[in-house]
């Protein structure tokens, strides 16, 4: 099986019914994606599969054969040490959008997905996007704040880039 993970092609030899979560964590060493319940109830394992958020604990790896996966490790750009954090990642840190951080990786992927199609999300848009992501420490307001802050930053930098082209 072949899966493109965070832009990189990975060959996977695993039992077909192993979960994508298991393969990401155990075979590919991408432990940023978390296992909170193994039953699709908490969203800690959220990744993007062919451009849409899914619970990786509920996807058999064979279902992802040939697909493209983005995990939390694929949100920043540049790689260490020149890593550039995504505006969402910076905003989550600044706004205390998490405490223990165990839900954060999945939460970030859901918010990252939202910002692909909505550059100015309302509170309701954000809460709807994270309606499958459970946070026990903080709740969700600080996530709303962070996503709106990140969206504003992205809009500003997009506008800047357009002005430069013009």
């Amino acid at each position: 099986m072949r899966i493109t993970v965070n832009g990189r092609q990975r060959d996977v030899s695993s039992e077909p019914v192993k979960t994508l979560l298991h393969v990401l964590r155990e075979d590919l060493g991408l432990t940023g994606t978390k296992d909170g319940c193994s039953s699709g109830d908490c969203g800690a394992c959220t990744v993007m599969l062919d451009g849409r958020v899914v619970n990786s604990c509920m996807v058999m790896v064979a279902q992802a054969d040939g697909a493209s996966v983005v995990t939390v490790e694929g949100i920043a750009t540049g790689g260490q040490p020149a890593e550039v954090l995504h505006p969402l990642q910076k905003a989550f840190s600044q706004c205390w959008s998490f405490q223990c951080g165990f839900c954060t990786q999945g939460m970030l992927v859901s918010c990252y997905d939202l910002l692909q199609t909505n550059d100015n999300p309302s509170r309701e848009d954000i809460l709807t996007a994270i309606a499958g992501n459970f946070c026990r420490c903080t709740g969700y307001q600080a996530v709303v704040t962070a996503v709106q802050q990140a969206a504003a930053e992205i809009r500003t930098s997009d506008a800047g880039a357009q002005n430069e082209r013009a």
Binding site: G40, V54, N55, V59, S110, T128, G132
Partner: peptide, 9 residues
């Protein structure tokens, strides 16, 4: 129905 990740699958 459930939440976004489940609706996508």
């Amino acid at each position: 129905f459930a939440g976004p990740p489940i609706r996508n699958r």
